[in-house]
């Protein structure tokens, strides 16, 4: 193969590759747009489906209970089941389901594990604290309340939906 030929073929190779990559990227960007245009409901639901946490309304009390359940997660190119947790309880007559993820930097909070504050959520990482309703306690690192799950009751069973930020 002559030197000239070689160069041409290399350039061609690059051109093809770049077109290929560009096309691939364009397709990647277009696909969600097309999907959204076709089915706006897909976007509106935010992807979160309601899942049962295996607890009935009668199981609830004012004492926060931890429930574990599975959700589908897309991470890179894997879709996998992952476990999630929530603290579920009755607060002023309503069902409240709090996310256990500390709003400071994301450690997992527990209820009542700090002996001095038995009625609060406590984060072991930097001693963040939250009131029973999830309100962050000033003077501790978190600056907003714990996130809440959408709650639905179907045939007496508790279902949790997407997670929402407050404050």
């Amino acid at each position: 193969m002559s030197e000239k030929n070689h160069r041409v073929s290399r350039r061609q190779f690059l051109t093809y590759t770049l077109t290929g990559v560009g096309g691939f990227m364009a397709a990647g960007m277009l696909a969600p747009m097309v999907r959204m245009a076709l089915d706006p409901a897909l976007e509106a639901s935010g992807g979160a489906e309601f899942v049962s946490v295996g607890l009935s309304e009668d199981d609830l009390s004012e004492e926060p209970q931890r429930v574990d359940f599975n959700v589908e997660i897309v991470d890179g190119w894997y879709t996998s089941e992952q476990s999630r947790s929530a603290w579920v309880f009755l607060y002023e007559g309503e069902i409240l389901a709090l996310s256990p993820t500390c709003t400071h930097l994301g450690c997992t909070v527990n209820f009542g594990t700090n002996e001095e504050y038995p009625d609060q959520f406590f984060c072991p990482c930097h001693f963040g604290r939250f009131e029973r309703d999830g309100t962050n306690i000033p003077g501790t690192p978190p600056t907003r309340p714990l996130d809440v799950y959408d709650v639905e009751v179907r045939d007496g069973m508790i279902y949790l939906g997407q997670i929402n930020q407050r404050g």
């Binding site: 450690c107 984060c123 072991p124 930097h126």
Partner: peptide
């Protein structure tokens, strides 16, 4: 990975 999830902030 489980450990990381519990103590992700520190």
């Amino acid at each position: 990975e489980y450990l990381e999830r519990q103590y992700a902030g520190r």
